[in-house]
């Protein structure tokens, strides 16, 4: 069994809104870069599959050489190899085409896992596009994966519950976070070993991008002045709150 996990290095997704600034329509370069949050869930899911079924686990990314030290965390967590396609595009079609190069290089990947959305552009499109390019099944928001007799049984978390789905053949799955796939902390020895692992760097290709023009990117203004209610007498505060909510026609 061969599994590939897609991982993207993104600017710190926890930068507080008040400190957020843009440079050239993207997050300012001063923010620390790290592996996207859901991508880590996907990596963890991949490692669990590796442990359970003895799969090999390749980490595939599209980005720049500077991302390598950050991506090594995925190896330290339990990935077997790291494949980086070099490129700078933000376009989902270009990204998917480039990821496809690495997946083809890896050969016979049974399952491609990806975080349900990147933690920068919050798009959640690339994996679907990639599935189509690879001509395989794509399922979104998967929380659990089991393999049985050549078929995959997966649990999909959707807005109103969850469902178990089954399919066979190759697939791309987008992974959502669940209590079972909280990313593990890599052991120090694994971190040290990961530093020495060779990284396969692949030259990216040009592919036709989507036909949309990004007009502008702005930071929305949050304006809301909070009225703090007194907390000496809770009964009084409760009544006051309900009265105020009615006054302003919220209730």
């Amino acid at each position: 069994m061969k599994i590939a996990v897609l991982a993207k290095v993104v600017p710190d997704y926890e930068v507080p809104a008040g400190d957020f600034e843009l440079a050239g329509n993207r997050a300012h370069a001063r923010y620390t870069r790290m592996i996207g949050l859901y991508d880590e869930n996907a990596i963890e899911t991949g490692i669990q599959l590796k442990e359970k079924y003895g799969a090999t686990l390749g980490i595939v990314s599209y980005g720049q050489s500077e991302d390598v030290p950050i991506l090594r965390k995925a190896i330290a967590m339990g990935g077997d190899s790291l494949h980086l396609v070099l490129g700078e595009s933000d376009d989902p079609y270009v990204i998917a085409s480039n990821l496809k190069i690495a997946l083809e290089q890896l050969q016979d990947v049974d399952l491609v896992l990806a975080g349900q959305q990147s933690a920068d552009l919050d798009r959640g499109v690339v994996h679907g596009v990639l599935a189509e390019m690879l001509g395989c099944t794509f399922l979104a928001q998967i929380s659990r994966i089991e393999s049985d007799q050549g078929r995959w049984t997966v649990c999909q978390n959707h807005e109103s519950g969850s469902r178990m789905l089954q399919f066979s053949g190759k697939a791309v799955l987008s992974i959502t976070s669940s209590p079972e796939n909280v990313p593990r902390i890599p052991a120090v020895r694994a971190i040290m070993a990961a530093k020495k692992k060779p990284v396969e760097k692949l030259q990216g290709t040009d592919a036709p991008p989507m036909q949309v023009e990004e007009v502008k990117v702005e930071i929305p203004k949050l304006e809301s002045v909070c009225e703090f209610l007194p907390f000496e007498d809770m009964q009084e505060t409760s009544r006051m709150l309900l009265a105020r909510l009615r006054e302003e026609r919220y209730l």
């Binding site: 620390t32 790290m34 902390i185 120090v188």
Partner: peptide
């Protein structure tokens, strides 16, 4: 070696590792 940290400590650790400060979820720049 065992990567066994209590939950909050592991968050602080993660933040320290990723952002070089342990105050995960800070509202301040």
């Amino acid at each position: 070696e065992r990567s066994e940290l209590p939950e909050l400590m592991s968050k602080a650790y993660n933040s320290l590792e990723q952002r070089r400060h342990p105050f995960f979820g800070t509202g301040s720049g």
